[in-house]
Write a protein that binds this DNA or RNA. Structure first.
Lengths: 345, 345
DNA sequence: CTGAAAGCGCTTACAG
DNA sequence: CTGAAAGCGCTTACAG
């Protein structure tokens, strides 16, 4: 139609810019920008004409340029502990859905519970000047988060609170969750409890352990044994269970796995070793991921309201983006017990 | 140390820019940029001094500005069919790991098998001028992908090939996979096969069905029945199985579920209805996600080499980014049969 | 309602 | 080896 299109397919044409649109439409670039950003400022006829040209030329706004002027990216970054764990992807989906209502894209990064990868992702998000950041911190990132905040990025901690009252957080009460899980095992008459989870230093896990210990302390004759794992996946559960079985002087009669992936691994190892679940050893997991219900022996678990966790996190983040001076707030959600066959014949 | 730092914590300070670094270090902004991008062009002493200042001031490069000059983002975008399906997150992890070797971040978007959301994500990635894009297309996005390519974005299709030889792709042979699955059921003596999957139009699923139909056509007395679902999750499987059971005139003796999530749902519904698996009805799934092995009845499945799928996709993408004129290439990987208890007593 | 101009924070030839 | 200057593609007051 115009000479511009002669550059056409084949050779990697320079992208169409506002300038091209303006030239073709016979208006100034400012007007093109206004059509895009404040359409009410432009007369109907100009607007429609410009829109038609945009469509004809296949113009797509360059977000980098826009951001550079606007000062910040409208995307939100999220650092997730483990993308392969359905619990986290469910939380992320809760976030994503809420953010979609504000037309803000979510950029997901996976720390894999590794402090170095977490750093790299924070670098990336800082370079990108994301407007908001959701983290489940692994390493000591407080100074880092402060710098991000000072630079104008809203920060909200997900799934644990920070050791500081400067940032909002949403978390589930893990001490209560740990207590609920073990209290249930004790109520079933179990006394020799083993806790399988890790790694050491991961707050969520430590709290679950503390809750477990509190429940055990309240019960005569009950004992709690700790098996520390690395990243909590099924393999960690298998190894943990094998360790417990190898040492057969004092076999537990119940295992509390710090998440469902570990519980599933424990279940596999016990089944393979011919140990009957729950008769000889009961198992309870944590998170209540969808797969818990369809496990070989349906798994009892402590349910975390994961979609709600995501939604509340997104809400807090949006509120902080809109008002950076907003007071920090720690939201604590409650876990609940889900009983299935792995703890109850 | 300098007056700049007086702006300090508390008020949202303007971000430290190259200009600030240059001023503090007593060099020009060009030199600061060179320290960052071509350190070999700068003398050791200047470099070290500038680096020290960068550290002291907490300078972090603004990626938007950098991108604007460079013309494209070094990040890679990926549109995934369903983040809640472990198959896709495993593929994504394969991609992520390979990309990490090139220090390129992966931005994940979730289409949820919805053509509109797919469009939105492509808009986003186009605005961001990502250097590469990995898609498992849902809608008719060919013109869109062409435009992205003409704009300089490398595009590779994942998990299916495009109806065009212009773009590279990596996929697993789904016809073969469908055939393998159903041939296995036939070999076990099953004859009344039901296929549960969907939605209609999703290439992967159609191919699996075609493979299934081919196997059935080769066998005397075998029949194949189709139950179409929407998004393939456990709920879809439950509903599909309920439909099959309701119509008890002609109950199948085997079900081929087009993915493991659906298979797990089918298994739940059958168990709930008191149907014995595999005696009365055998079940085989597709993907061989980790959870297949730990299901209530361990699930037979067709294994797709998912990490390899991700790695090959990342390699093709990197090659295309480095050489945009590179000829398109369709890589086809082979699926394999994994037999467990759900098809074999 | 529309246009001309400045400027966001970088990188990149080009001189020196 | 270093500096001065142009320019990437937008948005945003400011005039008119």
């Amino acid at each position: 139609m115009t000479d511009l299109s002669a550059a056409g397919a084949g050779d990697r044409a320079r992208a169409v810019s506002v300038k091209d649109v303006a030239a073709e439409a016979g208006v100034s670039v400012g007007t093109v920008s206004n059509v895009l950003n404040r359409p009410e400022k432009v007369s109907t006829s100009t607007r429609e004409h410009v829109l038609a040209v945009i469509d004809e030329l296949g113009f797509v706004r360059n977000d980098a340029a826009r951001q550079l002027r606007a000062g910040s990216n409208h995307a939100v970054g999220m650092v997730v502990l483990d993308v392969r764990n359905p619990f986290f992807t469910d939380v992320a989906r809760g976030v994503e859905e809420r953010l979609a209502e504000h037309r803000r894209p979510l950029i997901l990064g996976n720390s894999g519970q590794d402090a170095d990868r977490e750093q790299m992702l924070l670098d990336l998000f800082e370079e990108q000047r994301v407007s908001g950041l959701l983290v489940s911190p692994v390493g000591g990132v407080l100074p880092r988060l402060r710098r991000l905040r000072d630079r104008g990025t809203a920060v909200v901690a997900v799934d644990r609170r920070l050791d500081s009252s400067e940032f909002s957080s949403v978390a589930v009460d893990d001490r209560l969750g740990g207590r609920i899980a073990v209290q249930h095992l004790l109520d079933q008459g179990r006394r020799r409890i083993a806790f399988v989870g890790g790694p050491r230093g991961l707050t969520q896990v430590e709290h679950r352990y503390e809750g477990a210990a509190a429940a055990v302390a309240d019960t005569d004759g009950a004992t709690l044994r700790l098996v520390v794992t690395g990243i909590m996946d099924a393999a960690a559960g298998r190894h943990g269970a094998e360790d417990l079985l190898a040492d057969d002087g004092d076999r537990p009669d119940a295992i509390f796995a710090a998440n469902d992936l570990v519980a599933l691994g424990v279940l596999q190892a016990l089944t393979l070793a011919g140990v009957s679940v729950p008769d000889e050893i009961a198992i309870i997991g944590y998170d209540d991921i969808d797969f818990a219900a369809s496990a070989a022996i349906p798994l009892s678990s402590v349910r975390q309201p994961r979609e709600q966790l995501g939604a509340v996190a997104a809400d807090l983040l949006m509120a902080t983006i809109e008002d950076p001076t907003r007071a920090a707030e720690d939201v604590v959600l409650e876990p609940s017990l889900v009983v299935r066959r792995s703890t109850q014949p």
